[in-house]
């Protein structure tokens, strides 16, 4: 069953095959978690949001067509969940720090971890200045999605992905330099 496509697994889920859903979960969990971790910055919140993403898939298993791209749907929902979590945080934080991880969740860090946290903060602050789609494209490409997958997840024409990535990359570089000043 490992070799089955996502669509076939989802079809089996629709017939009540719990093992098929377990395989879908195992196949996509790491990426879903990875997307969320990069967005929200804490393990606890990323794990909780990842659960919500898979619960939504499970609850909607009967309303999704078999040919649907399950991975793209999961990554899109994960990105939206992450952004929604950040928006909730924005109500408490100023806009410039919207993409910083919640300080209440941060663990005390030694020097090396502190340096890493500083780098992460700068990257997040730079990303916070970009449009959502640019952030989505950059993060998903960084975790290894193909151009075709990016087109599906972000809802853009496959032929435009490269150009959009380049623009997003340039915008990030400018924002990051601004953060470093």
């Amino acid at each position: 069953m490992l070799a089955l496509t996502d669509s076939r697994l989802l079809a089996r889920v629709q017939t009540g095959d719990d093992r098929a859903f377990a395989l879908l979960f195992q196949r996509h969990y790491d990426r879903v978690y990875g997307i969320l971790f990069r967005l929200v910055g804490t393990r606890a919140e990323a794990e909780d949001l990842a659960q919500e993403v898979f619960l939504r898939l499970y609850q909607q298993r009967f309303s999704r067509r078999r040919e649907h791209n399950v991975g793209a749907w999961l990554y899109r929902v994960a990105t939206n969940q992450g952004y929604n979590a950040l928006r909730s945080r924005q109500r408490r934080w100023r806009r410039e720090t919207a993409l910083l991880p919640d300080a209440t969740d941060a663990e005390p860090a030694p020097a090396e971890a502190a340096a890493q946290a500083e780098t992460r903060a700068a990257v997040r602050a730079a990303l916070a200045r970009l449009p959502k789609r640019d952030v989505q494209l950059l993060l998903l490409r960084q975790i290894g999605l193909s151009y075709a997958e990016l087109a599906d997840v972000c809802g853009v024409a496959p032929g435009s992905v490269g150009t959009l990535l380049r623009r997003a990359s340039d915008a990030f570089r400018r924002a990051y330099e601004r953060e470093e000043r």
Binding site: G34, F37, R38, G41, Q116, T119, A126, L138, L139, Q142
Partner: peptide, 8 residues
């Protein structure tokens, strides 16, 4: 730079 956001 984006890799800095990856889980440690």
């Amino acid at each position: 730079k984006l890799g800095a956001l990856a889980p440690g």
